[in-house]
C-alpha cells in the first residue's frame, strides 16, 4: 500500500472509524461544493477578462475622441490652457464610490462614478474665447472617465477574482489529492487493524473454548472415575444407572452453549 505512511495519527478504534467516515463524507461534499464555486467564479472570471479585453480596446477609441475635443479647445482658445487648469483645480467634482457585489461568496468591489453638484472649478475658463468648447470638452472627458471607471471596476474584479480562484482551486486540489486519499487511507488502516483485532479475538476465544472443553473432559473423566469408585463402594444398581444417564446430557448442553458463544 503506497499511502500506508500517509494517514492520520489515530488509534484504530471503532469511534475513530466513525469519525473518519464522517470526515470523508464532509470532504467529498466540500470538494464538490468548492469545485462548483470555482467553476462559477471561473465562468465569471472569463466573462470579465473578455469584457476587459473589449473595454481596453474601446478605451483607446474613447480617449482619442476626448483628446480631439481637447484639441478643439486648444484650437478655439488659441493657446494652451493646461497650466491654468492645473492651477485652478481645487476640489474633485468627479468622484467615485465603491460598492460590493457578491459573486459565489466573493465580495467584488465595483466603482461607481458620481459628480458632486455646484462645484465647478473651471466655469470661467475660456470666458472670452472658446468657453463653449471647454464645456463640451469637459463633458467628453467626463464620459471618457466614466468609461475608465467602469474599466477600473472590471480590472479590480479581475485582480480579486484571480486571487480568489487561485485560493479556491488550491483548496479543491488539496481536498482532492491530499485530504480525501489520506482519509481513505486512514479508514482502510483502521479497518485492517480492526480486522486484525477480530482475528486475534476469534483465535483467543477458540483457544479458550478448547481449554474449556479439555477441562470439562478432564472433569468428566474424574467424575466417571469417582462414580465408578462409588459404584464399587455402594454397589447399589438402581441409583447408579439414573446418575449415569444425566451426566452425559449435561456435558452436551454445556458444549452447545460454548459453541454458540464462539460463533458470533
Amino acid at each position: 500500500m503506497s499511502g500506508a505512511a500517509d494517514r492520520e495519527a489515530v488509534f484504530p478504534t471503532r469511534q475513530s472509524l466513525g469519525l473518519m467516515k464522517a470526515k470523508l463524507k464532509g470532504a467529498e461534499t466540500g470538494h464538490s461544493l468548492l469545485k462548483r464555486k470555482s467553476e462559477a467564479l471561473t465562468k465569471r472570471f472569463r466573462e470579465i477578462t473578455r469584457r476587459i479585453d473589449e473595454a481596453k480596446r474601446k478605451m483607446g477609441r474613447v480617449m482619442q475622441i476626448a483628446s480631439l475635443s481637447l484639441a478643439e479647445v486648444t484650437y478655439a482658445v488659441g493657446g494652451n490652457i493646461g497650466y491654468q487648469i492645473q492651477e485652478s483645480a481645487k476640489s474633485a467634482r468627479f468622484r467615485i464610490r465603491a460598492k460590493q457585489e457578491n459573486v459565489s461568496g466573493v465580495l467584488l468591489p465595483t466603482f461607481e462614478s458620481y459628480q458632486t453638484e455646484g462645484n465647478n472649478d473651471f466655469a470661467m475658463t475660456g470666458l472670452g474665447k472658446g468657453g463653449q468648447q471647454v464645456q463640451r470638452c469637459r463633458e467628453t472627458y467626463a464620459r471618457a472617465v466614466e468609461a475608465l471607471v467602469e474599466l477600473a471596476s472590471l480590472q479590480t474584479a479581475f485582480v480579486i477574482l484571480d486571487e480568489v480562484i487561485k485560493v479556491v482551486n488550491r483548496r479543491v486540489n488539496a481536498i482532492e489529492h491530499v485530504i480525501i486519499p489520506r482519509t481513505e487511507n486512514t479508514i482502510k488502516y483502521i479497518n485492517s487493524e480492526l480486522d486484525e483485532l477480530d482475528r486475534e479475538e476469534f483465535y483467543r476465544l477458540k483457544k479458550v473454548a478448547n481449554k474449556k472443553q479439555r477441562d470439562t473432559a478432564a472433569g468428566d473423566a474424574e467424575m466417571k472415575k469417582k462414580k465408578e469408585e462409588q459404584d464399587k463402594v455402594d454397589a447399589s444398581g438402581q441409583e447408579n444407572k439414573e446418575q449415569e444417564e444425566t451426566g452425559p446430557t449435561d456435558i452436551l448442553a454445556d458444549a452447545a452453549a460454548e459453541d454458540e458463544d464462539v460463533i458470533f
Binding site: 476626448a66 481637447l70 487648469i85 483645480a89 481645487k90 476640489s91 472649478d121 473651471f122 469637459r138 471607471v149
Partner: peptide
C-alpha cells in the same frame, strides 16, 4: 478600506492631465 476611496489620481502628460482635470477629477 475601500469605503474611503473616492478620488481618481492621474499621472500623465500635460494634455491627458488637462483633459482629466477638465472632467473634474482634480483634487487638492
Amino acid at each position: 478600506d475601500y469605503k474611503d476611496r473616492q478620488f481618481i489620481a492621474v499621472i500623465g502628460d500635460e494634455d491627458s492631465v488637462t483633459g482629466l482635470l477638465l472632467a473634474g477629477i482634480g483634487h487638492v
